[in-house]
Write a protein that binds this DNA or RNA. Structure first.
Length: 317
DNA sequence: CGGAGTAAAAGGCACTT
DNA sequence: AAGTGACTTTTACTCCG
């Protein structure tokens, strides 16, 4: 069967008005999908073709037109663009020894060139570090966009020679924290620090590095959105969604009244959540909330008191 | 026990030396 | 990099219902 015949056979099935499954007619309502009246078959006429949109009539055209490979990414030091010379032709004895030796040498040189440069090598280590740290946090684990952004941040820091005198891993942590702050992800410095301590990186160093980057690039970092923290509390404590919603409302108002500046975002979020739980008779103890929010009960009390005073002025409760 | 409150110690931040 | 000062949070504790 020629290609033309195959093509005709395939398309005629779709174009004909008979169901290819049972042969009966389609029902076609206006603006609706075609559905077979008797067996329910839906022809996937508009499904996406996995095939290339071009055609090649000889080998030369094929090699010229083909464009494949993984998409470009910032998370690999050479952006994932380099072709890796495979090891197949080295190991496989069906190839002649000359060829195998040649490929072996090519591979060796490729490895050298790829990461031989100190800058490139460090970039590779740093970006790997970022990826590694990402895998420790479930907020980040499957967040490709955050990984790309962190990698972009890291590259920017590296290319400006700002890692000199600082450790790669500390910079990696700082870049992750930066991304979290930029994207409003509820990942606190403490969260990162707990993980970093295991690698011998102190919280202080991450914070200093982070501030250094922010200052150097003159970045405008939004004030943390407290809602993120309150929903984090809600998740950990398994509270009702309504309590969480009320907590975020309280935080909105508190923010509007400038009650959030200078205070720890987690403390205020915890207090708002406590307040919401009291108001909604979904009562949680201060201790319970303090534990998941990583603040003390005293802080919750203080912030709670302040919220109650400022938010309910003149309002009979 | 849950919560209110307090004094003193500790910690973080912006800024200076 | 260490010191300073204004400020917040933590520690540790008391008291109340």
């Amino acid at each position: 069967m020629t290609a033309i015949q195959k093509y005709n056979e395939r398309t005629s099935k779709l174009k004909s008005d008979a169901c290819p499954e049972c042969g009966s007619k389609y029902i076609t309502a206006p603006d609706k999908e075609k559905v077979c009246g008797s067996c329910g078959y839906v022809p996937d006429e508009r499904s996406m073709s996995q095939e290339p949109e071009w055609r090649a009539f000889d080998d030369e055209q094929r090699t010229r037109r083909i464009r494949v490979g993984p998409s470009s990414t910032l998370t690999i030091h050479d952006k994932g663009l380099s072709t890796i010379i495979g090891s197949d032709s080295v190991r496989n004895s069906k190839y002649d020894p000359d060829r195998r030796l040649k490929v072996y040498k090519l591979r060796k040189w490729q490895t050298r060139i790829r990461v031989a440069d100190a800058y490139e090598r460090n970039l590779a280590i740093g970006l790997d570090g970022v990826k590694n740290i990402f895998s420790h946090f479930n907020q980040l684990q499957n967040n490709k966009a955050a990984l790309e952004q962190t990698s972009a941040n890291y590259r920017k820091v590296a290319s400006n020679g700002m890692i000199r005198g600082r450790s790669l891993i500390t910079t990696a942590y700082a870049c992750i924290y930066l991304t979290a702050r930029q994207t409003g992800t509820a990942l606190t410095l403490d969260d990162l620090a707990t993980d970093a301590e295991k690698n011998g990186v102190s919280r202080k160093d991450i914070a200093r590095n982070y501030r250094f980057i922010v200052r150097e690039f003159d970045l405008k970092i939004p004030v943390p959105v407290n809602k993120m923290y309150s929903s984090k509390i809600g998740n950990k404590i398994q509270g009702s969604p309504q309590t969480e919603i009320l907590a975020t409302r309280i935080l909105d108002v508190a923010k509007g009244m400038k009650l959030t500046g200078g205070r720890s975002p987690t403390g205020i979020a915890a207090a708002a959540y406590y307040m919401a739980s009291v108001l909604r008779n979904d009562h949680r103890t201060q201790k319970e909330i303090a534990e998941v929010a990583n603040v003390t009960e005293v802080t919750i009390r203080n912030r709670y008191k302040e919220l109650m005073e400022k938010l309910f002025i003149g309002v009979p409760v």
